[in-house]
């Protein structure tokens, strides 16, 4: 067990190093950092001095070491576009994205898991078939189209909800939240739905497939033959054995939420990290792109570690190996 965790930790460090190296290569090789930081009027001598100050003449490995070290200490450099410290830009934008993502994820799991269980247990009911067809359409409609449709319906036609921005926000220290005002919630509804719908359909379909697999297993048949009540059969035996794969799914969902938050934030002009990243790509703002990349990878690696630990909590085969 400890070996298992140690091995995963080691792999995570490897992944992080690799991503950091990609970010470093971006910074170092895509465009020339010096010409980005200086104007046309800077003399060649000044440019050379800046080059030396930045350590761009040092051996590559040493530069990478310094780059990683700076990342670890929270020194992320300066944006080419706004000339602000990247760290500060990210900190300002993070609350908006996290609030959006968490609400979307909660929607997708709260609806997706029960719907998946239902369609697995009653695969032939009319309602299940309808749900399945609906979710297939849900998987096929691009996120931005869902966003446009919601804007059109609730924003343009009915005029009930705002269609862009975060609405009223309150500051809790450094955290700017929209969860404490009615106006903020109103602004959050449409983007969170947009982001949540795709994840919801995915969750439902995957839970259904796993649950159907489990319900055909020998131990379920044996438990049925022992006359265990159907409720216990479905939840105590069926759903709990579905949990392991479902946790993997939830882990992957986080990745999906991050990716699609870029699209959602673009459609609703939601001032979060995704929008920042999109702007930085348009302007080839390498430092912001690099830091965003490292941040996302770190987030993903941490989620995966948590998922691995949860496996062990749920599955005794990973926890206790001793024979009796």
């Amino acid at each position: 067990m400890t070996y298992f965790i140690a091995k995963r930790l080691l792999q995570s460090v490897f992944v992080m190093l690799a991503v950091a190296f990609i970010a470093f290569s971006l910074f170092r090789f895509v465009g020339d950092p010096v010409s980005q930081m200086t104007g046309v009027e800077t003399s060649l001598a000044d440019q050379a001095r800046l080059r030396a100050e930045l350590g761009l003449d040092d051996p590559l490995l040493q530069q990478f070491y310094r780059f990683s070290n700076n990342l670890l200490q929270g020194e992320f450099g300066y944006s080419y576009r706004t000339r602000q410290p990247v760290g500060q830009m990210i900190v300002e934008r993070i609350p908006a994205t996290i609030e959006l993502g968490v609400v979307a994820l909660v929607i997708s799991l709260l609806v997706g898991i029960p719907a998946g269980v239902y369609t697995a247990l009653k695969p032939n009911s009319f309602f299940s078939q309808g749900l399945l067809l609906t979710t297939l359409v849900g998987v096929s409609v691009p996120t931005f189209v869902i966003g446009i449709m919601l804007i059109f319906l609730f924003g343009v036609q009915l005029g009930w909800l705002p269609t862009f921005g975060r609405g009223g926000t309150l500051n809790l220290g450094a955290w700017e939240t929209s969860l404490l005002t009615v106006d903020g919630w109103k602004s959050l509804v449409l983007p969170a739905l947009t982001l949540g719908v795709y994840q919801l359909t995915l969750t439902m379909r995957l839970v259904r497939a796993e649950m159907m697999e489990v319900m055909q297993s020998d131990y379920i048949r044996f438990a049925t033959a022992r006359g265990i009540s159907y409720r216990r059969l479905h939840y105590r035996h069926g759903l709990s054995n579905t949990l392991v794969p479902v946790i993997t799914i939830i882990g992957l969902q986080f990745g999906g939420v991050v990716a699609f938050s870029i699209v959602t934030e673009s459609v609703f002009q939601w001032p979060g990290l995704g929008l920042l990243f999109l702007e930085s790509i348009r302007f080839v703002d390498i430092p912001v792109m690099g830091v965003y990349l490292v941040l996302i990878a770190l987030f993903f690696v941490v989620i995966n570690l948590i998922v691995d630990l949860l496996y062990a909590v749920i599955d005794p085969r990973l926890r206790v190996q001793k024979a009796v």
């Binding site: 020998d218 131990y219 048949r221 438990a223 033959a225 006359g227 216990r232 035996h237």
Partner: peptide, 30 residues
Amino acid sequence: LRGDRISMIFQDPQTSLNPLMTVEQQLIET
């Protein structure tokens, strides 16, 4: 009636038991 008056034993003991529940839980439940 199942379990109460008629019961069944399957072929493969490796897969006949719920892997996530202790033997005690499965017996008491039944």
